[in-house]
Nucleic acid binder design. Structure first.
Length: 236
DNA sequence: CCCTGATTCGC
DNA sequence: GCGAATCAGG
């Protein structure tokens, strides 16, 4: 498996959400945890709180150190708060949410506001929304849907071009500017892709990014994932 | 043991 | 560039 642009974008998004390398590897499929970590580092993604201190190595590091005791002003920086569990959300986002400032759209230029017009019953009650790394609005915990949208192939017979699909976004219409969110199932006559303008840097439009990249819930509040309609992502 | 991410290094 | 092997902390 190679690192296509889309796979790299998915890696970035999941990494920024605090997913573990193992999880990311499993979701991407075809790569190991190590591959994910290696790629993340090569991409220059933010480091995570590592269990291994970069301070000293096992090798005695026979630092001469004799000269200049270097009264290093003892770095008191304690970057990682005593959070026993994993990082679930980026602190900046959490802080923003807690601040509860009405927060006008901080995103510059209101990326792709157009597609939102037709939908969104405009919740009358003020709600705090979690903003994803690409500026999309995450779904709240209450409205999260089971993460099963990309349906697996059901048959190998490709859909024949027909009037039904004439104006839909087909596989051949995909490029990095359109939303690749699948509608329906591969093989079915009306299977197509969302086709909206993609959120820059993501494979999906703003709406579908909100579905694809959801804030993680604490484990205990997490519903066990619904049974997958097929064997599951595990390749072994 | 399990998990985690970081680093190294041969390919 | 890639990722298995290895390391080390929790």
């Amino acid at each position: 498996m190679s690192w296509t642009d889309e796979r790299i974008e998915r890696l970035k998004a999941m990494w920024n959400e605090g997913k573990t390398a193992s999880t990311i590897a499993e979701e991407l499929g075809g790569v190991s945890r190590n591959a994910v970590i290696g790629k993340a580092h090569r991409l220059g993604l933010d480091s995570r709180p590592s269990p291994v201190k970069p301070g000293e190595e096992k090798s005695a590091a026979a630092e001469p150190a004799a000269a200049a005791p270097a009264p290093a002003p003892v770095q008191t920086a304690k970057p990682i708060a005593p959070e026993p569990t994993r990082v679930r959300e980026r602190p900046a986002i959490a802080a923003a949410l807690e601040a509860a400032a009405p927060m006008p759209p901080a995103t510059p230029a209101e990326a792709a506001p157009a597609p939102a017009a037709a939908s969104a019953p405009a919740a009358p009650t003020m709600q705090y929304r979690s903003i994803g790394p690409g500026g999309f609005v995450r779904q709240g915990p209450g409205e999260q849907q089971a993460p099963i949208p990309p349906a697996p192939p059901r048959r190998l017979v490709p859909a024949k071009p027909s009037a039904e699909v004439a104006d839909k976004t087909s596989l051949l219409d995909l490029n990095d500017r359109v939303c690749k969110w699948p509608i329906g199932h591969p093989g079915e006559p009306d299977f197509h892709f969302c086709g909206q303008q993609a959120n820059p840097g993501f494979p999906y439009c703003v709406q579908h990014c909100g579905v694809a990249y959801q804030a993680q819930l604490p484990r205990r509040d997490r519903r066990p994932p619904p049974p997958l309609p097929f064997g599951g992502p595990r390749v072994r």
